[in-house]
Design a protein around this nucleic acid. Structure first.
Lengths: 209, 209, 209, 209
DNA sequence: GATGAATGAGGATTCATTCAT
DNA sequence: AATGAATGAATCCTCATTCAT
C-alpha cells in the first residue's frame, strides 16, 4: 500500500495511458517508455499488468474516504450546505483525477478484478450511506421533502459529472471553447457542473414533485 | 449502410463482445467463433477490426434519429409530457441496446474514429436542439422557469441513465436483487430510472432555485 | 494422428533438438529455424510447445506396436529365437530412432504429460506381456528355467541398450573408435549390443542360478 | 572442492531441482527460494548457473571412488563375492543419490561440461578397470568363463539399475505398490535389483553361452 | 561478505491480416 | 464469393546476471 518513487511514477503513467487507450490498448512497453523505466521493471514491481491495474486502484482509492467523512462531523453546516459541499468535493476530486475516473468508468476491469470490485463496492456503499444520513437529517429539520431516493441521487451526481467529463471535447466544440486554455476550461467546467448539480439537488430535495 | 445477414450477425456479435471485453480485449477470432463465421470473413467484409467497429456505429446510429423527431411534431403533448416521453424513449432505447451504449461509453474509440466521432456529434447536437426547442416552448407557455441549461440537462439524463446501467450489478447487490430474473430487473430499472429522471426534471424545470 | 508434410518436418526437427538440448533447452525459435518454417506455425499447428512434444510421442509410438506383435504369431520360431528376434528388433528400432529414445529417457516430461504417460505405460505393459508369453512358452517346453522375472529382464534389455546408446561417445573414445564412420560404428554397436544381450539372456534364461 | 554450509545447501537443493525439472526447467530463483538464500548468492558463490551444475558433479563424484577401491584390496573375498559386493555397492550408492544419478542420465549436460565430462570419463574408466581385474582374477582361478565383455557388463549393471530407478513409478503402478511407503519401496527395489543383477552376472560369468 | 534493485535478452504465444485458391 | 493456410509483428513475462552498496 506504500509505493516508492518509481512505483508511483509507473502507476501514474499507467493510469493515464489506461485511461486514454484502455487497458488492453496499452502495452507494458508504452507504460515503461512513458514512465522512463525498464520494461521488466513493471513485472518486477507489480508482478503483472493486471496487478499494476489493481495497484492503481489501491493507490487512488486508499486515501480518499477520510476527507468526506471529516465533513459530516462538522455540525455548523446545514444539510443543504453539506450536500453542496459534497457536490463540490466530488467534482473537485474527479476533476483532479480525471484519468482515474475514466478508468473507473471502464467498468469491465473493475468487474473482472475481484479485489478491486470489493474495494469499489465498499467505497460506493459508504458514500451512499453518508449522503443518506445527511438527507435524513434534512428531512428531520424540514429542509428536505420526504420520499428521496438516495441511490438515484448518487447516480445522478456521479453519472452527470462523469458523463460531462467524458464528453468535454464535445462540449468545447459545441460552445466554441476549443481554444480555451485547459486551466480556464477546467474552472469553467467546475463552476458549470457545480451550479447545475446544486440547483438540481436543491430543486429535487426541497420541492414536492 | 445496408448489411447482409452474415454482416449483421458479425456486427451484433462484435457489439456484444466489444461491450463486454473492450475493443482490444476482443480478438477477431473471438468474434468469428461466436458469430460462427470464418476468421478471414471479418477482414473480407469490413476491411479491418477498426472498420468493423465503425460499422457497428453506423448500424446502430443510422436509424435512431427519426423516431424522436416524429414526436416533436405531435402537438397534442404539452412540453412537460414531451420531456417525459423523451426520458422514457431514451431509457427504452438504452435498455434495449445496452451493449451499444456501453460501447458509446468507451469514448476512447469514438474519439479515435473520425467518421464516427462526427456522426455521434451530429446525433448529440440534434437531440440537444430538439430538447432545447421543447424547453423554449415550455418557457413560453409558462410551464418551465427561465434559466435552464439544456446541455447540462442532457448530460444529467444520459449520464444518470448510463451510470445506472453500468453499475446495475452493484445496484442488484445493494438491494438484494441478485436473484431477480433479468426480465423483472429490467422492468424495475426502467420504472425506477424513469420516475427518478421525470421527478428530477419536473422539479428543476418548474421551480425557481 | 495424421500429420501433413510440414507438421512431420516440425516434429522431426523438434525431436532431434529436444533430444540434443532438452525440452526447456530448446526454444521454438530454434525449432522453427531448423525446420525452415515460421515461428508462429508451431503454435498454429500444435497449439503449444508442450503439445508439440506430445505430438512427437503420438507420432513415434503410434505405429510401433504392430511390428512386434506380428512376430508372436510366427510359430516356426522357438522361444529362444523369439527372444533373440525381440532383442534385435528393439536394438534396430532404437538405433533408428535414437533421438526419440533419448527423449523417452528424459522421463521428467513423460511424467508430466498425462496423455503421453498413459501411452508409454500401455506400450510398456503390452511389450512386457508379450515377452512374458514367450518366456512361459519356453518354460513349458523346457527351454527356459523357472523363476524368471520378466519385468527385470525387460529393464535389463531396455536399460542396457539405452545406457549404451547414451554413452556411445564414451565408448568410442575408450576403444579408439573416434574416427570410425558413423555407419560403421552403428553396425558395430548393433552387433556388440545384440550379442551381449542375447548371450546374457540365454545364460540367465537357461541356467539355474 | 571444499564447500561451506550455504554452498552445500545450494548444491543439494539444485541437485534435487535439476533432477526433477531439468537444468533449463529450473530457474535460479527456484533454487534460491528452495535453498532459502538470496538469488544473487548463486552467481556470487558459483559464478553462474552452469558452474553450479559443475559444482554438483564435483561435489558428488569427488569422494566416491575411494570406497570401492578399498574393497579390491580385501583378498578374503572370492571374485564372485567381489562382483556381488560391487553390485550391492552400486545399487546402494545410486539409491542414496537418486537425484544425482538422474542428473547423470541427462547426459546432455555432462557432454556440454568439458571439465565434468573428463571427470566422469575417468571415473567410469577406473571402475571398469577395477571390474576387469576382478573378472580376470575369476578367470584365472576358473570361477568365470572366458570371453567376457567387461564394458558391456558395466553397461548392463548401470543401465539396468538406472532404467529401473527412472521408471520406478511405472513399476509401482504395474505391481500395485502405489501406496507402499517410500522406505519400504526402496528396500524392495534394492533387494529386487540386487538379486536380479547378481543372478544375471553369475549366469553370464560362469556358464558358457 | 552479502544483497536488493535493476535490466537486456530472450522466452512462448497471440494477434490481425493477407493471399492463393 | 468465401476460406484455409500462413505469417510478421507485437504481446506479456521470465530469465540469469550485474552492480552499487
Amino acid at each position: 500500500m506504500e509505493y516508492n518513487e518509481k512505483q508511483v511514477q509507473i502507476i501514474e503513467t499507467a493510469e493515464q495511458l489506461f485511461a486514454t487507450n484502455g487497458f488492453e490498448g496499452t502495452s507494458v512497453r508504452d507504460i515503461a517508455q512513458n514512465a522512463g523505466v525498464n520494461i521488466a521493471m513493471i513485472s518486477y514491481y507489480f508482478g503483472s499488468k493486471e496487478k499494476l491495474m489493481e495497484a492503481i486502484f489501491v493507490y487512488r482509492i486508499g486515501y480518499t474516504r477520510l476527507k468526506i467523512e471529516s465533513m459530516l462531523k462538522d455540525t455548523v453546516l446545514s444539510p443543504t450546505q453539506k450536500i453542496e459541499k459534497i457536490v463540490d468535493s466530488y467534482i473537485e476530486k474527479m476533476m483532479g483525477n480525471q484519468c482515474f475516473y475514466r478508468l473507473m468508468a471502464q467498468e469491465q476491469h473493475v468487474r473482472e478484478m475481484q479485489n478491486i470490485s470489493e474495494l469499489v463496492f465498499q467505497s460506493k456503499f459508504l458514500n451512499t450511506e453518508m449522503v443518506r444520513k445527511i438527507v435524513q437529517e434534512g428531512q428531520k429539520n424540514g429542509e428536505f421533502k420526504k420520499n428521496i431516493d438516495v441511490v438515484m441521487l448518487m447516480a445522478t451526481m456521479i453519472g452527470t459529472a462523469n458523463h460531462f467529463i467524458m464528453q468535454q471535447n464535445y462540449y468545447r466544440r459545441l460552445n466554441n471553447m476549443l481554444d480555451m486554455s485547459e486551466e480556464d476550461f477546467q474552472k469553467h467546467v467546475k463552476r458549470k457542473l457545480g451550479n447545475h448539480l446544486k440547483n438540481l439537488f436543491k430543486a429535487t430535495l426541497t420541492h414536492e414533485a
